Simulated scan of single mutants.
Amino acid sequence: MEDGNTTTPFLDSDQDDILNGSSIPQAPEGFKSGFIAIIGRPNVGKSTLMNQLVGQKIAITSPVAQTTRNRLRGILTTPEAQMIFVDTPGIHKPHHQLGKVLVQNAQIAIDSVDVVLFVVDGTVESGGGDRFIVELLTHTQTPVILGINKSDEQPPDSQRLDESYAQLAAPNNWKFTKFSALTGDGLEALQQLLIDHLESGPYYYPPDLVTDQPERFIMGELIREQILLLTREEVPHSVAVTIDIVEEDPKITRILATIHVERDSQKGIVIGKGGGMLKQIGSAAREQMQKLIAGKVYLELFVKVVPKWRQSRLQLSEFGYRVEE
Rank of each mutant, 00 (worst) to 15 (best):
G128I: 13
G282A: 01
T177V: 15
T7Q: 15
L161N: 09
A240L: 04
K279Q: 10
A169N: 04
L190P: 00
K57M: 11
D17S: 08
L161W: 04
G186C: 12
R216A: 12
K150G: 01
H237V: 05
F176N: 06
D16R: 15
Q167A: 15
A37L: 03
T253S: 08
V235W: 05
G274H: 12
T6H: 14
D87V: 08
G147D: 02
A169C: 04
M1G: 15
L19V: 06
Q290D: 02
D185F: 09
T77V: 05
G320N: 04
D16F: 14
A257F: 05
V239E: 07
S62V: 02
G122F: 04
P28S: 12
S126T: 11
P42S: 05
G34A: 02
Q82M: 01
A284G: 06
T177D: 02
Q82R: 00
V239I: 13
Q192Y: 03
Q280F: 05
D111L: 06
L72F: 06
V323S: 13
I259A: 08
Y204I: 00
E135G: 09
E287Y: 12
V303A: 06
A27D: 05
V119A: 08
Q266T: 10
K304G: 09
Q52N: 12
G74D: 06
K57E: 14
E287M: 14
M1D: 13
Q97D: 05
A285F: 04
S33K: 00
V270H: 07
Y321I: 05
E287D: 14
H139I: 02
V44A: 00
I60P: 11
E221P: 07
Y205G: 01
P171S: 10
I218Q: 07
L230A: 07
E324C: 09
T211A: 14
K279C: 05
L187E: 03
V116T: 07
E233D: 15
L146S: 02
